[in-house]
Design a protein around this nucleic acid. Structure first.
Lengths: 336, 336
DNA sequence: GACGATGGTCGAATCGCTTCGACATAGCCC
DNA sequence: GGGCTATGTCGAAGCGATTCGACCATCGTC
């Protein structure tokens, strides 16, 4: 591989001049600059990543901690990752993947200067990694919002707002008996905060609209969805609207509805909170509030970049929810 | 951060001695070794990744090119990634993610010595990246097998064998009219080789068993599955067994079967080729031939390590398919 | 008891880049 | 026209590791 020395020789300038042409940190006259650029192009020169990292103490790498535990919603994870990687590249950074179950990972990356920053996803309310993150030498951004955010930067969908929006949308059509089919008991036990905040938003808006909104958990499986619907109808007869925040259960829920002769939206209105591309997996179109994974990943990287540029404010950014009508909501008991 | 110099000072030895203790490339007496190790532990020393890469011309990073195009089977992708990352860590390597639609990616990584090797997934029969891969300075491993493998190392499930196994399994139960519900037309147009090889295996075994085995493509959606079943029954009446190599369509296909009053396995036997954790998303258990994503990722990394260790044989490794019975196959027209 | 082999440690060169200070030239102002 | 600031370029000092050759003890061997 060509080195910066080769480029300098080819262009008839010094090594430092080449460096300054490439970084733009000092002014270089147009003729010299062009000669250097031509030499760079001719030789196919790329700075050696290690050498650059050593000299500049910047690796141009962002570490991303990805959860690989079974049962996780892979769809949304991939959206996050895609958003992060794409945006990182736009800022001339690469992305290194860490796994959740490598407890040394964070400190290893930090101590060895392998990455300049860390993005952590799948954050629980009192995530075990928080103390480590707070004391880490590396700037870090969380995807997901823990209970105590002091000293941390977070980004996520405004799930509370999403809950309110979903209920409002159903209320607007005249529904008075709405149920939230939410995350599994397991997730709640782990204090997954998106589930908690979603529920909070739903309850809040329901109270404000003077309506009931009980919560039924569902396992994230086909069967889980079917059982959840059974339970909704058994425990809350008269329910006309459903907010489903459990994309893996949605298929089973819809299938069971069909089995029981319930038409959507005539007999049952449904709003789902889920990644956008869920539609393909469902028998009928469902109106959704999108979890914008790619966008959140993008924002996370932009927060990283801001931090690397020196702005060290710890902030929490919540993305506003948007509702997209696909026809699964109508006035109760009325053909639309 | 502590440097190797700090460690040397703390242990009262020279820098090179510390390096040799850490790498084990020269014998160091037990007392010295222990003093150094204690100093390392006390200071929490980790070698600076960039410095190490510069001096040793080894980055201890594997680049992994991940497809993020919409409609891809995210499940299996995540399994690959998980397998690769986990195994890489076992070999003291990290994983850097590249996207498919960053055509510069490979050469950038190679020219800048950012990674020591490259794993590429989602390989098509005459993948556009093959020439670049062949001429790359970096060892590369493909997940998926192109038509022309000369000079390349590949790993994949033996889809041809999977096709044969699936048909054999159905034949064993007495089925004579079997249909392969396969990849979408789009995938076939892109010459996705797993689809081609799968079809080949199915046809081969069908011919050997003196039975018919037409192929019906399906869009990878719920609706696609439903339509595919309609088409199977319309074009191939009398079909009693299905090989489904299209996990996204499987849900819709099963739903349509139920709608039409077809019971599984009494009226219709089904073998699916898919990642193992598909089951949760289906209304009924389906016997599968697993696409062992994690295992394939693991093998890919092991092939990388072999290459980095000097073995430069280009080989193709096909993982043998295994069939797992979940009760969706029975003799035609017979209650099991 | 001299000699070569072996084991343990060190010093210094090297990897390829960034960046600081220095310097030369040119242009400007009063 | 002399002094100043700007502008463009260079040289050299790191950055933090690895690794080669050299050196000094020890030890066993004949």
């Amino acid at each position: 591989m060509a080195t910066i020395g080769d480029v300098a020789r080819a262009a008839g300038v010094s090594v430092s001049t080449v460096s300054y042409v490439l970084s733009g940190k000092r002014t270089i006259s147009a003729p010299t600059r062009e000669r250097v650029q031509r030499a760079v192009a001719d030789l196919g020169y790329r700075p050696h990543a290690g050498a650059r990292a050593l000299a500049s103490s910047r690796s141009n790498v962002i570490a991303l901690m990805v959860p690989f535990r079974p049962g996780i919603n892979v769809q949304i994870i991939m959206q996050f990752v895609g958003g992060v990687v794409t945006t990182a590249r736009e800022h001339d950074h690469d992305v290194l993947v860490l796994t959740q179950d490598d407890p040394q990972g964070m400190s290893r990356i930090a101590a060895s200067s392998t990455a300049d920053a860390l993005i952590v996803m799948d954050i629980e309310a009192d995530d075990a990694r928080l103390p480590a993150l707070r004391s880490l030498a590396l700037p870090s951004i969380l995807i997901g919002v823990p209970d105590d955010t002091t000293g941390l930067s977070c980004v996520d969908l405004d799930f509370s707002g999403a809950g309110r929006l979903a209920v409002r949308e159903l209320a607007r059509h005249g529904h008075e008996h709405v149920v939230l089919v939410g995350a599994s008991q397991d997730r709640l036990d782990h204090r997954a905060n998106y589930a908690v905040r979603m529920r909070h938003g739903v309850l809040e808006q329901a109270a404000a609209s003077g309506m009931s909104a009980p919560v039924v958990p569902a396992e994230p499986t086909f069967t889980g969805g079917a059982l959840a619907l059974d339970r909704v109808l058994a425990e809350h007869p008269g329910t006309t609207g459903l907010v489903v925040h459990n994309e893996a259960a949605l298929g089973g829920l819809l299938a069971r509805a069909a089995e029981r002769g319930l038409r959507v939206p005539e007999d049952l209105s449904i709003v789902a909170v889920s990644p956008a591309d869920l539609a393909a997996a469902l028998p009928v179109p469902v109106s959704i509030i999108e979890v914008p994974g790619e966008r959140i990943g993008r924002i996370a990287v932009e927060m990283v970049m801001a931090r690397l540029a020196g702005e060290d404010l710890a902030e929490t950014r919540l993305v506003s929810p948007t509702y997209t009508d696909h026809g699964s909501v109508a006035a109760p008991g009325v053909t639309p």
